[in-house]
Simulated scan of single mutants.
Amino acid sequence: MEIQRALWQFITTTFYPGDNFVLNECTSLLDSGLIDSTGVLELISFIEREFGITVEDTEIVPENLDSLGRLAAFVARKQAALGPREHARA
């Protein structure tokens, strides 16, 4: 849930959805018009910086990035893939 909360905070403060916009875990960020292609790049930059992961070009697809739920699951998978190797560096 911390991942989703951080993503929600970034999206709502960066893209200013407005008072009447409902952003839940299933809301399509693209179809709703909340973010565009430039916004996707900003979102990827935030994800890489905030969560210490690398988003590959092949991973920039709606299945990974189009809603809070999908984003949180994607970040969790990427962090899990880092495994103990990444933790050993800390």
Score class of each variant (00 low, 15 high):
residue 3 I to C: 08
residue 57 D to V: 12
residue 49 R to A: 14
residue 30 L to P: 00
residue 60 I to V: 15
residue 70 R to G: 02
residue 17 P to F: 02
residue 12 T to V: 15
residue 56 E to W: 01
residue 79 Q to L: 13
residue 65 L to S: 06
residue 85 R to F: 11
residue 57 D to Y: 08
residue 67 S to I: 06
residue 51 F to A: 05
residue 38 T to E: 09
residue 39 G to L: 06
residue 4 Q to P: 00
residue 62 P to L: 03
residue 75 V to L: 03
residue 76 A to L: 08
residue 20 N to S: 15
residue 13 T to L: 07
residue 13 T to M: 07
residue 65 L to I: 10
residue 12 T to A: 10
residue 12 T to G: 11
residue 28 S to C: 09
residue 6 A to T: 11
residue 18 G to D: 00
residue 47 I to P: 01
residue 80 A to V: 07
residue 87 H to M: 13
residue 83 G to W: 09
residue 79 Q to I: 11
residue 23 L to I: 06
residue 33 G to S: 06
residue 27 T to A: 12
residue 89 R to I: 14
residue 27 T to R: 07
residue 3 I to V: 15
residue 81 A to T: 02
residue 55 V to L: 07
residue 23 L to P: 07
residue 34 L to F: 03
residue 12 T to R: 14
residue 72 A to N: 05
residue 23 L to G: 10
residue 65 L to D: 06
residue 58 T to D: 15
residue 69 G to V: 08
residue 86 E to G: 12
residue 7 L to F: 09
residue 51 F to M: 03
residue 52 G to V: 04
residue 3 I to G: 07
residue 79 Q to Y: 04
residue 87 H to Y: 09
residue 40 V to W: 00
residue 55 V to M: 11
residue 45 S to K: 05
residue 41 L to H: 01
residue 55 V to R: 02
residue 20 N to K: 11
residue 75 V to M: 06
residue 3 I to S: 13
residue 67 S to R: 09
residue 10 F to W: 11
residue 37 S to I: 01
residue 72 A to H: 02
residue 25 E to H: 10
residue 88 A to D: 13
residue 48 E to R: 04
residue 8 W to I: 00
residue 57 D to L: 15
residue 82 L to Q: 14
residue 26 C to W: 03
residue 59 E to L: 02
residue 70 R to N: 09
residue 88 A to M: 13
residue 53 I to R: 01
residue 42 E to P: 01
residue 45 S to T: 10
residue 84 P to N: 12
residue 63 E to T: 10
residue 48 E to F: 02
residue 62 P to C: 04
residue 15 F to S: 07
